[in-house]
């Protein structure tokens, strides 16, 4: 395992130092408490947006802290949800008096830790709401399971709810918008290779020269099924069919063609061309899009595609100015 790190144990702390040095104008990094927040601090009367989760998904979440998006992010160890202390400190730090929204990806660890944090916040008089992101159609949902994973739609929820909060919406309104984005979004991922966590030092699974995993998550876990390598066009069709089957795609959509961390950008554009064609075959249109690495799994090769059915409100909020390390426009 060759990784550009100083030691297995210091990866997250070192990366936080790097973020602090790279974005002094945008971010304030509390290395001690492991919290990344806006350099500008909380704004009175604005709902605070806090997210967090395991590290290894960069730029998610800390790369989305800034004007028009998150107020703070709590990075956990690699692929490990952060702890309630971080979440409580973050909520207290960003609270501008209008309450705080926790954006939580649906994983047992994230859910439980944010739950404990929310309870403790309530005890301390900080009003906290939670929205659960669970967009991954590869996971069959049922009452008896952990439910769908939260993956790519997290970026959409954070951006759009962030814009609502920035625009002065009160907490229930921000919650409504966040839940609407989640309800209208679906994701599906494909791995061409596994990833290697620094702690384990070897790939989480082994794929042969022509094998791929369909329906992967973002923690290096294998997917629903192993399959064989195909053209970009066919792989995109597998992913898009899975989305469309779960939520018929039509009209103007917001699409993210996301790289898993080690997929060259030229390949992501190749895949995006196929997404655009697929959409027009359905009478839909990629009215807004992102192509690049947004929700990654360390050094995994592969992609995920996330589609959100837009409406006028969501489009307006998507287009609103944003100024974060990883997403920036209008400012």
């Amino acid at each position: 395992m060759k990784k550009l790190i100083n030691s297995v144990d210091s990866v997250v702390a070192d990366a936080l130092r790097g973020m602090a040095s790279a974005h002094p104008g945008l971010l304030r990094v509390d290395e001690e408490n492991r919290i990344v927040s806006r350099a500008s601090g909380p704004r009175a009367g604005k709902v605070g947006l806090v997210s967090g989760g395991g590290s290894g998904h960069e730029p998610l979440h800390a790369g989305f802290v800034g004007y028009g998006m998150l107020d703070a992010a709590c990075p956990g160890e690699i692929f490990t949800s952060p702890v309630p202390d971080q979440m409580i400190t973050a909520a207290t730090a960003v609270n501008g008096g209008a309450g705080v929204l926790y954006v939580v990806k649906n994983y047992t660890g994230d859910v439980l830790n944010f739950e404990l944090a929310a309870e403790l916040c309530a005890d301390e008089g900080v009003e906290v709401a939670r929205v659960l992101v669970d967009d991954d159609v590869a996971v069959r949902d049922s009452l008896h399971t952990a439910g769908r994973r939260g993956t790519g739609a997290t970026v959409f929820v954070e951006k759009i709810a962030g814009a609502a909060a920035e625009g002065g919406a009160p907490l229930p309104e921000v919650v409504r918008v966040a839940e609407e984005v989640n309800a209208r979004s679906r994701s599906f991922g494909v791995a061409l290779s596994a990833c290697t966590t620094p702690a384990s030092g070897r790939p989480t699974f082994e794929l042969g020269e022509t094998e791929i995993e369909l329906g992967i998550g973002i923690h290096g876990e294998p997917g629903r099924t192993r399959s064989t390598m195909r053209q970009a066009r066919e792989l995109v069709a597998v992913a898009m069919d899975a989305l469309d089957e779960d939520m018929p795609i039509s009209g103007d959509v917001l699409v993210m063609l996301n790289g898993m961390g080690a997929t060259p950008l030229i390949e992501l554009y190749v895949a995006f061309a196929e997404v655009a064609e697929y959409l027009s075959g359905k009478g839909a249109r990629a009215a807004r899009s992102l192509v690049g690495d947004y929700v990654t799994s360390l050094d995994m090769r592969g992609f995920s595609v996330t589609v959100c059915l837009l409406n006028e409100e969501l489009t307006r909020l998507w287009d609103a100015p944003v100024e974060t390390p990883a997403l920036r426009w209008g400012r």
Partner: peptide
């Protein structure tokens, strides 16, 4: 454990 582990196993 709750304060230092994270993940599912920490709170559990």
């Amino acid at each position: 454990l709750i304060r230092r582990v994270g993940g599912a196993s920490g709170p559990l």
